[in-house]
């Protein structure tokens, strides 16, 4: 049984009638994922690629036994959508929406923590478990197998695009992924690298994990602490992009909202050092991942 998603994931999409969400619905269905319902207020009775639309998530949940929801509503409505998900008893909420106000984010993340609900994102491109052909979010697009094939390597990335690229590198090396997670590019996300490593540690279907990171935040430092504490014992490969930002003046933002270098914290070189000394295999060049995986998992 995989982490986060499996064959029993019963999925609803909040904001399903939007352009992007409708496309994601189709790609999910084509892949074999159980996208069972959608929510768009005022559009109950319609359907999106055969998936029924409801006015409320509560009704969708009652009728379809939903346990996982994906939020595609515009930034102004994300806060309410998360609250609706928590109230409906959803256990895993993925927020795809980008540009969520940070005051809203701290509020709904606090509510989710209190309710014991796992939130992935905001600004996440999705989660995928290839073995069960289940994915939430846009991850993998319409040609999922190009990047994501079943295997025993976990992939974690703040960047959605690099979740796919990293999984493609894993495939190029001759392996596949157990579960790949785009944790979200924002500085405030519901699930950290550390949280994910804890899940992978317990996952009997994962032998190694690859993380793709960026400057800013302290997510990698948190992961390093976990390794030092001995709470993650599997092989960990880490790459930190954005080394060039260290030669830029402070206060410059590149990449995601989380990628801000300020006050001397969050620098790639510091993250690399912390992870390396904690026992992770820190990649000098991203392309090194292929030979290193081959060597470690042969």
């Amino acid at each position: 049984m995989a982490i986060l998603l499996d064959k029993d994931s019963r999925i609803a999409i909040q904001g399903i009638t939007g352009r992007e969400a409708a496309m994601v619905t189709k790609h999910g269905l084509d892949y074999g994922t159980k996208v069972l319902a959608g929510v768009t207020p005022g559009k109950e009775g319609e359907d999106v690629h055969g998936v029924p639309v409801y006015n409320t998530l509560r009704k969708a949940t009652l009728l379809h036994g939903i346990n996982t929801s994906v939020i595609y509503v515009p930034p102004a409505f994300v806060y309410d959508a998360v609250l609706e998900g928590i109230a409906a008893g959803i256990k895993l909420i993925l927020i795809a929406t980008e540009n969520v106000p940070q005051i809203d984010a701290i509020k709904f993340l606090a509510r989710a923590r209190q309710a014991g609900v796992r939130v992935i994102g905001p600004n996440s491109v999705g989660v995928i478990t290839p073995k069960d052909r289940v994915k939430i979010g846009a991850i993998g697009g319409d040609k999922v197998d190009r990047c994501f094939v079943p295997g025993r390597v976990g992939v974690i990335s703040r960047s959605g695009g690099m979740t796919a690229e990293t999984s493609w590198m894993v495939k190029k090396a001759g392996f596949g992924v157990s579960t790949a997670v785009s944790i979200g590019g924002d500085a405030l996300v519901g699930t950290s690298i550390r949280d994910m490593l804890i899940l992978y540690e317990q996952d009997v279907e994962t032998d190694a994990v690859v993380t793709f990171s960026e400057p800013g935040t302290r997510l990698e430092e948190g992961a390093a602490d976990l390794l030092v504490a001995g709470a993650f014992t599997k092989k960990l490969f880490s790459f930190i992009a954005g080394r060039f930002t260290e030669s830029m003046p402070e206060g410059t933002v590149f990449g995601h909202a989380g990628a801000i270098i300020s006050g001397g914290t969050g620098k790639p070189s510091q993250k690399e050092e912390r992870l390396r000394s904690a026992g992770a295999d820190v990649l000098e060049r991203f392309d090194d991942l292929i030979p290193r995986l081959k060597e470690a998992l042969k």
């Binding site: 990335s157 703040r158 960047s159 959605g160 695009g161 690099m162 690229e165 590019g185 793709f212 960026e214 400057p215 992009a241 954005g242 080394r243 060039f244 930002t245 590149f254 990449g255 995601h256 990628a259 060049r285 991203f286």
Partner: peptide, 16 residues
């Protein structure tokens, strides 16, 4: 370049 992370990677690669 495209993607927050992919762009950082590409920039680093050009410089390297």
């Amino acid at each position: 370049c495209g993607g927050g992370g992919g762009s950082l990677l590409a920039f680093d690669a050009l410089v390297s």
